[in-house]
């Protein structure tokens, strides 16, 4: 084994083989996957992100929600994702066709969010939870995201989506939290996460 070129050729061959097998071939297999038609509603699913939800996805990425939350439902019989109500079916490649990049995650310090929009459709709940997770979920270790909000103490001229803070969490009473744009976008994104519909490949 004293010949360097042999070594280098071998080294490069191994990695070219693996990238072919693990990235290029699956891409070939999945590239043509498109959305499914929902004839009743006249739309195609999954719905592409647009407007606030599209911006919110960027907020989700820049705040690193991915380090505590997954977006993938494991199949029945492998874990208890479906029994926990995280989705009505397993996630399939089709669910991610608009996801650049996919935010599947590898850590469940918090619950899976693949279908959080269906499970928790209240924007108010999300605002309170984001502002201080322990308001809605005692004992939670999710970080508070107070920097996404403005706090006001007078009811005059409050925007529609302002939420009253429960007194025990307010430094001055009364307090309202007013979501800044990034909070609005983020919640729009969370509410858009809903993959509870039938696809042919999962049952």
């Amino acid at each position: 084994m004293n010949r360097a070129w042999l070594l280098v050729v071998g080294v490069i061959a191994t990695i070219v083989a693996s990238v072919t097998g693990l990235v290029l071939l699956p891409d070939r297999q999945l590239r043509s996957t498109g959305p499914v038609e929902d004839e009743d509603r006249g739309i195609t699913l999954p719905v592409a992100y647009f407007g606030d939800a599209e911006e919110g996805r960027k907020v989700y990425m820049d705040l690193g929600c991915i380090y505590c939350h997954t977006q993938q439902v494991r199949p029945e019989g492998f874990g208890a994702d479906i029994e926990r109500g995280w989705g009505m079916r397993r996630s399939v490649a089709r669910d991610y066709i608009h996801d650049e990049p996919p935010l599947m995650g590898t850590m469940r310090t918090g619950p899976d969010l693949m279908n959080i929009g269906a499970r928790q459709p209240s924007a108010q709940w999300h605002y309170l939870h984001l502002y201080e997770p322990r308001i809605t979920s005692p004992g939670s270790i999710m970080p508070p995201h107070r920097f996404l909000f403005e706090v006001r103490h007078s009811a005059d001229g409050l925007p529609e989506d302002a939420v009253r803070l429960p007194d025990e969490f307010a430094r001055r009473k009364p307090s309202w939290i007013v979501p800044r744009d990034r909070a609005r976008w983020l919640v729009a994104y969370l509410l858009s996460l809903d993959h509870n519909y039938e696809v042919p490949e999962a049952r």
Binding site: L7, V19, L30, I97, D99, E100, P101
Partner: peptide
């Protein structure tokens, strides 16, 4: 030799797959 050839190939092709349409959706994972 393995390390110095593998690392740039890995890094550059990963950046390409992840940030260009060379791979799509779930395959990016």
């Amino acid at each position: 030799f393995g390390a110095i050839f593998w690392f740039p190939l890995l890094y550059v092709s990963a950046q390409l797959f992840l940030h260009t349409p060379a791979a799509k959706g779930a395959v990016k994972a």
